[in-house]
């Protein structure tokens, strides 16, 4: 099927030092599909989202790559077209829902904005529709909540309000950037449930960004794992979760099980992703990878950066960026 969102070799660098924060990221989201992007802090997940939204901070620039949404080239949009993109064709959720709402404006007035902007509703129509939208995301007493100010909402309620706002104009794509990370576990489950329900009702595609594989496993159709500004493994949720190939993916899954070792310690990936920042050659994950020594690949991993190779039964079903797994397959 023709993908709804297609990102090809997206590269984002700092303007002053040309340091690459995203390096050749390629992702595809099919209509009605949920693609989860996972990785630790600093892997470039949120930056990918901001790039799609054409909302990169001024100090960064997109130095290469193509992005299309339903065939429209996103990188060549004019200012006004970007405004219709926001909330009109792409809805967005954030990690801190309360902080994304203007503290001095009522909740209702902010939910109404995309209705007036994108659907050209009158203020009166919008006011009425807001109440329906709030009720649709499971908010009790929508009339009272619409009059409330953001600081009077709990995190869960605020995220429901954000969902109502993001989906108000029925965009074909929803980008959810860590939408449940700041919430209590019980609230997190409710919000995930709501997102799945909305997805079913509206048939939109979702780019779901998270660091938490447990959360992702309940909602994703496909998963892309990012590390240090690159996609290191991508495949169907099933494949990634049950047959991970990349050492980093395996380590992430190991972490997410919360199993402890013999001494009662939780599993931790040694080192931090900042170790990748200094590397200008070879595999980015090399300093933290167990496979390098194990498979006697020091020279290969050090010399050249691995490429994203197809390892699935059919092409593009499962891709992995690792010399170790490539070796294994060739040997087998």
């Amino acid at each position: 099927m023709e993908p709804l969102l297609e990102i090809d070799s997206l590269t984002v660098s700092t303007r002053t030092t040309s340091k690459r924060l995203l390096d050749g990221v390629s992702l595809r989201v099919a209509p009605g599909e949920v693609l989860a992007v996972v990785g630790e802090s600093g892997s470039g997940k949120s930056l990918t989202a901001l790039s799609i939204m054409q909302m990169l901070p001024r100090v960064l620039e997109m130095s290469a790559g193509r992005m299309t949404l339903a065939g429209t080239d996103l990188t060549s949009l004019r200012r006004r077209e970007i405004d219709t993109l926001h909330g009109g064709r792409i809805g967005m959720l954030f990690q801190q829902p309360r902080r994304m709402l203007d503290p001095t404006a009522t909740v209702g007035s902010q939910v109404a904005e995309p209705l007036v902007r994108h659907l050209r509703m009158s203020r009166r129509e919008a006011r009425r529709r807001v109440l329906e939208l709030l009720a649709d995301v499971g908010i009790d007493e929508p009339a009272r909540r619409a009059q409330a100010y953001p600081h009077q909402l709990s995190g869960g309620l605020a995220q429901r309000v954000m969902i109502a706002t993001a989906l108000a104009a029925s965009p074909p794509l929803l980008i959810a950037d860590e939408p449940t990370t700041a919430l209590d576990v019980t609230v997190e489950a409710q919000i995930l449930q709501l997102l799945k329900q909305k997805k079913r009702e509206l048939g939109m595609s979702v780019l779901f960004i998270s660091h938490d594989l447990n959360v992702v496993s309940s909602i994703a159709d496909r998963i892309a794992v990012m590390y240090a500004g690159r996609v290191v493994e991508v495949g169907t949720a099933d494949e990634i979760l049950t047959q991970p190939e990349h050492p980093y993916t395996k380590a992430l899954i190991e972490c997410s099980t919360l199993r402890t070792d013999a001494s009662g310690q939780l599993y931790v990936i040694p080192g931090g992703s900042d170790t990748a920042r200094e590397l200008d050659h070879g595999c980015r994950f090399r300093p933290r990878c167990g496979l390098t020594q194990e498979a006697h690949l020091e020279q290969v991993c050090d010399a050249r950066e691995p490429v994203l190779l197809s390892i699935g039964r059919s092409p593009a079903e499962h891709e992995c960026r690792c010399w170790g797994t490539a070796e294994e397959r060739e040997g087998a």
């Binding site: 405004d83 994304m100 995309p114 954000m162």
Partner: peptide
């Protein structure tokens, strides 16, 4: 520089 400015732009309000 506040998050709610990003939030408002994400709703399509424009700069």
């Amino acid at each position: 520089d506040s998050p709610y400015i990003v939030g408002a732009r994400a709703r399509g309000l424009g700069y």
